[in-house]
């Protein structure tokens, strides 16, 4: 019986809320009536007994009172378990939401970095061409002026011919250089796009996991590689040439194997 009273006290304590005198004063409360825990629990017990007494008699009443107490304790425990589970799930949900936020931030940063890089490249290219053209024009002018000073040919004819000649040569050089630059640039952009795609895929997976947050306990961001780009045999390696041959051999064998597998599929 004493144990039950203690449990009842705990229940009342849990259902109550704490507040300060200041906050009560702010709400306009000047006086409070104090009712002790012991008194409240006694009142609850008395009320239950009185209610049972008015409807039941003898042994039946005692049995029902015991059953009610047992049921009360069970419900109390269930309630505690539910509270604990709820707080755990909420904690896990918060962690998963943090991860999603972090992924979103990283995705945005990657996109911004890519955009910035593309813009910088476009601007840099335009500036370089402008400078090169000016230099070419200056050189041609210098040549034409020197020809004019010699006085042997029509100035405009010579200037036009020289201009055509030089721009033709420069245009060819420019095309080949541009093609090389584009190849390098495409690879870089391709890698960034693939990494962004991986981030996107991960974002989708993480959002799905959010639905099953109870199973998600620890979030591990991984450890970064020490390499920021693809390596290859080091230039100063004494066995460099031999290693390159071996790498080529391994690659050819794998290429053959994977092509065959794709063909089979």
């Amino acid at each position: 019986m004493a144990g039950f009273k203690e449990t009842l006290k705990d229940a009342v304590r849990q259902l109550s809320f704490r507040t300060s005198l200041d906050s009560l004063r702010k709400k306009g409360v000047q006086q409070v009536n104090v009712l002790g825990l012991d008194r409240i629990t006694a009142l609850i017990e008395a009320a239950v007994h009185r209610s049972l007494k008015s409807r039941l008699v003898g042994v039946e009443r005692e049995a029902i009172a015991d059953a009610t107490k047992a049921e009360f304790l069970r419900m109390l425990r269930t309630n505690e378990d539910l509270q604990r589970q709820k707080s755990e799930v909420e904690e896990q949900r918060e962690r998963a939401e943090d991860e999603v936020d972090q992924l979103r931030r990283e995705l945005t940063q990657q996109n911004q970095a890519l955009q910035l890089r593309l813009e910088q490249d476009a601007l840099g290219l335009a500036n370089r061409y402008e400078g090169e053209n000016a230099a070419i024009a200056r050189k041609v002018t210098e040549v034409v002026q020197s020809l004019a000073q010699s006085g042997s040919a029509s100035l405009s004819t010579v200037e036009q011919r020289l201009m055509e000649l030089v721009l033709d040569v420069v245009s060819g050089e420019r095309q080949s250089a541009e093609a090389a630059r584009r190849t390098l640039h495409d690879r870089e952009v391709d890698n960034l796009q693939r990494r962004i795609k991986k981030l996107n895929d991960n974002l989708v997976v993480t959002e799905q996991r959010l639905q099953l947050v109870a199973a998600q306990k620890n979030v591990d961001g991984g450890i970064s590689s020490v390499y920021r780009e693809v390596q290859g045999v080091a230039g100063g390696d004494g066995q460099g040439e031999k290693k390159k041959e071996l790498m080529s051999g391994i690659f050819q064998a794998n290429l053959k194997l994977q092509k065959k597998a794709q063909g089979g599929a």
């Binding site: 590689s225 693809v230 390596q231």
Partner: peptide, 20 residues
């Protein structure tokens, strides 16, 4: 191709290619 960024803890993180 890759970038280095500063985390909240001030620790540098490199991103790129992980060989296994």
């Amino acid at each position: 191709m890759s970038e280095t960024k500063e985390t909240g803890e001030g620790q540098k993180k490199d991103h790129g290619v992980l060989y296994i």
